[in-house]
Design a protein around this nucleic acid. Sequence first.
DNA 1: TGATAAATTTGATTTAAGTCAAATTATCTT
DNA 2: AAGATAATTTGACTTAAATCAAATTTATCA
Lengths: 224, 224
Amino acid sequence: MIKKFAFNNQFILNELPETERDSLVRSMKSKKYRKNQAVFSEGSIPSGVFYINDGKAKKFKLDSEGREQIIYIYNEGEFFGYSSLLSEEPYGDSVSVIEDANISFIAKENFMELIDSSPTFSRLLLKSLSHEFSVMANFMAVLSQRTVRERVALSLLILHDKYKVSSDEEISVSRLDLSNMVGTVVETLARILHDFKEEGLITTEGRIIRIINQDALVKISNFY
Amino acid sequence: MIKKFAFNNQFILNELPETERDSLVRSMKSKKYRKNQAVFSEGSIPSGVFYINDGKAKKFKLDSEGREQIIYIYNEGEFFGYSSLLSEEPYGDSVSVIEDANISFIAKENFMELIDSSPTFSRLLLKSLSHEFSVMANFMAVLSQRTVRERVALSLLILHDKYKVSSDEEISVSRLDLSNMVGTVVETLARILHDFKEEGLITTEGRIIRIINQDALVKISNFY
DNA sequence: TGATAAATTTGATTTAAGTCAAATTATCTT
DNA sequence: AAGATAATTTGACTTAAATCAAATTTATCA
């Protein structure tokens, strides 16, 4: 169920034949990013793609009033930024790091060269983009049809899934980021987290959220 | 501005070299669909891709309560259904015809064969999927951040753009479909259309909507 | 065409979620 | 570690949009 909300494009690297993988990995230049640092911003011109070795980043859009809608949280092992490169358009959204991260950059030339030389790579990218498309459609339907309470429950489950890999079972995002992912306002989010605590579904400690009763959250999220 | 909300994948056919285009076109089998007829449904297994020769179709998701969120309205000249095929997953959404249509089907084998044999075709699909991804992100942000009034204005502009090609400047969709595109309820939609009429921005005649003052709608939509 | 059903509109009311304001708590920074 | 700044929570209130109900208009097809 949660996998309907995860890009999970790790398979690109895993399923790539050794030669191509080596070539891709060799062209990566890694760089450290501090929390809140921007990787790229909407409107600028893509010059390559990114791969998260470690850490997390948010993909988001700002509207004219400066409100932010988080579209996706990238986790370690995921590629990003290739859709704008491939569509030959400026970035349609922004990516910023939400916890200290180590991110590799693959220059446009290297990336395009690999696409041209490797049908397998193209094929994997097609598969990945197609899956990402379905994730977006799922999330869009959730944002437009479900209540804030349902969306908070679902977002916690999505984040739990991302954080279980690295930090043991602890979700650590700012309330503002969480509210921007849910598509609500921090005050409303705080109230709902308060409710969830009272109902014994989660515990919090500063910005850290721990999920106690996953099944109940699944029920509340009302998503099958 | 409106092109941020259009897949516009007509370029696939236009930019395809003649040999490949011929091969693709030869493998098409056209079929007539009546209004409201389903082309495919969420959960079923893709067996090919579709191309609209004539007519319009809606891509949508149903939630557990049976509410429908329209994700996109396909127009003549657009391909659809290839993202599920390429992601090797069951359909993540449904497509139904909203006015009598003539739609061609390309069997999976033919489509995949062309991908394998034509790097240009792969490349065009990558470009198309990437663009579609950005359209989804744009629409998602609109659904989560903008008021119903703003969304109605934007949706009318989007539809106007689709309908100007075929029927001269007349939008003809059911109020229910329009409300499901906007992400609201028919009653609320009716009220807002009423307001727009009073403000002299549109006229209606049965289900037909004509846009009188496009600039004003752009302003109301509050999208740049 | 006329009858029946379906779609659309309007009215009255409720409610979920947003806004504004303030208090409390956490987190940086030096 | 203290002080300053930022983040989070809580309270009171407002509002946009949903719901429920009914009337009216439009479409369908026998």
